[in-house]
Design a protein around this nucleic acid. Structure first.
Lengths: 343, 343
DNA sequence: ATCATTTGGTAAAACGTTTTAATTGTCTAC
DNA sequence: GTAGACAATTAAAACGTTTTACCAAATGAT
């Protein structure tokens, strides 16, 4: 056992040819006769030759690895994303090296620094506040980069994400169509542009529908609040806003916290309060009476991101700086937004 | 911009020393005078020197990367796992390269082959039927390997997973304590040893409690069934087993399918049917009246796995072949197993 | 027959490290 | 003073590839 890996040099010796010849045959370059080619291919095959990635990487400067930096691979959204990205990358012979930042800025910076030690050919990153410089630096150094799930306003870094503004706008519209007029919103204080866009969509929709100003019916959960505290905060919020008859949660995890809060308060959905949450997931489809959600097109986002990245990698001088892909979401209507029966 | 990365050679030139000296200083080897050391360190620091991983890898044969091969990174269980593994690995300066097999044997084989092209120093793998040979081959070639979430009976590959037998046994016990006597089970037909162990635990518990033989009240969902078909199958199963008053789902996804089925049939939990599912997750805590679950110690499993792997990597001649870590699970009791009120 | 071209093949450099073995001084001990 | 020990430094080989530039032989054109 422990057969030493066979190298190109060994194959050369075995076939009585030169290293160059073997390399040429294996890569389909140069011009080598059919017979010699066949002999080399046979020997390579028989001995299970696999090129040494490190050597190739050192010589050519390409690693065939792309770095995926996300907030956390756990969770349905990024998990699903990672899966698609990995599958698509694999088709191009690329592998994924995965890093999570847990929303920790320093960790994000570290990750970028590590990966840039010539070990990845491109990056897919979920941006976070404070990482602008580091990412811009990659771009300036002509590293292929695609941002997903967020972007940096005012910079020229290609990005693909759901259309957050329109999605939130549509959610409010859905409430209105069903007869709800006092629509509150719960969001998080993470400094993420995507949450901000959702807020803007919400506010714009209120305004367009001539509904009362929302400043009162808006709750921002601090980023460092844990789950239980969050539930309590939401409960307090709901109790205070007596007239509120519908509530919009801007993220998945806020939505589940919200359900817990509503359950604790023994309120009925949608009779006492209608609900919409961002990010569809199993809880929402199962939880009675079914929670209306904004389903992010994870597949499309991931697919587009990897495609754009590959395009950058392959055609070296592609100008991707103008790519701003905002993909529409899908509103999944369930029981939580049934038409209101006026009291 | 696009400053060419600085190399050890450049630093040598800049400090008027030799390549060797720089390498020695940077790695704390050899014996170099304080003054020269300082000069070199300063220059390296100032220019943001980072060693070229490829070159190091080629020269030393270690990549500082470990391969994580799981069924699918999506899903709460593996996602959480991946997170812990990545965090722990990072402490030792290792990065994770991630691959999912989607339960596809060929893909699993391909992954192992790719990763073994000298690009990872160790493997964490969720085993699947048919991969025995390939994995054994890694072990024979002295590659560090740890299996998680499953194992190959009769082989000597270190593994860490939840104690599936005891977990299932405890679930049945919980039903019995609450007064349920006709306990059915729904499992999947994936050929996975862990599911088999769960079945065995279930059967043993039935026997020890002198309950009626279970062969009738056992449903096996074929591996290629989609979600809707699964729900239908479970509905049919429940309707057929009139006397069944409790049901045990051996996986997360079967559990949620089961909830859907029970909901469709308009049965009450636990009055009409008590429920326990493997793998705790948000749905189960939220879904009224709260579903009792077997919570896998994901953190412990992941932590142990990476620790064992690191131990193998660092102390080269560690005999890990006897490591068989079966970690107890935690039964989270919720409303779905409240004491039965006899009719 | 001679020169130009093509065809089939290879030597050698380079990528950026690590590490062995060698080379210079300096110092100690006799 | 000289032999050995030791300290500080370095030259050079090696890891496994890719690729440039070159060479010899065969073919074609005149």
């Amino acid at each position: 056992m422990m057969k030493k890996k066979i190298s190109i040099k060994d194959i050369a010796k075995l076939t009585d040819t030169s290293i160059t010849t073997v390399s040429f045959v294996l890569n389909g370059k140069g011009r080598i006769s059919k017979e010699i080619s066949k002999k080399i291919l046979d020997v390579a095959q028989k001995n299970g030759y696999e090129p040494n990635r490190m050597a190739v990487g050192l010589r050519t400067g390409v690693s065939k690895v792309i770095g995926l930096i996300v907030e956390s691979i756990g969770g349905p959204f990024f998990g699903e994303m990672a899966k698609v990205i990995e599958e698509e990358a694999e088709k191009g012979g690329y592998r994924i090296i995965y890093c999570s930042t847990n929303n920790n800025l320093q960790k994000g910076k570290d990750m970028i620094r590590m990966l840039s030690q010539q070990l990845v050919d491109g990056y897919i990153i979920t941006p976070m506040k404070g990482l602008e410089k580091d990412i811009q630096n990659l771009v300036d150094n002509e590293k292929p980069v695609v941002l997903i799930d967020g972007y940096f306003p005012g910079t020229n870094i290609p990005h693909v994400l759901v259309d957050n503004f329109a999605s939130a706008y549509n959610a409010v519209d859905c409430f209105v169509r069903s007869g709800y007029k006092n629509i509150g919103m719960v969001t998080a204080d993470l400094g993420l542009i995507q949450l901000n866009d959702r807020s803007l969509g919400y506010k714009a929709a209120l305004k367009d529908n001539k509904l009362k100003d929302s400043s009162k019916m808006l709750l921002k959960i601090p980023f460092d609040m844990d789950k239980n505290e969050g539930v309590e905060a939401i409960k307090a919020f709901i109790e205070k806003q007596k007239q509120m008859d519908a509530i919009f949660f801007t993220t998945n995890y806020l939505g589940t916290m919200g359900l817990q809060a509503i359950k604790d308060l023994k309120l009925r959905i949608p009779e006492d309060i209608a609900v919409i949450s961002f990010d569809d997931n199993e809880v929402f489809s199962l939880y009675p009476p079914g929670i209306t959600t904004i389903q992010q097109p994870t597949y499309d986002i991931a697919k587009s991101a990897i495609d754009i990245l590959m395009a950058q990698i392959n055609t070296h001088k592609l100008d991707a700086s103008k790519i701003d892909l905002q993909i529409p979401s899908k509103l999944i209507e369930r029981g939580s937004t049934l038409a209101k029966v006026s009291a």
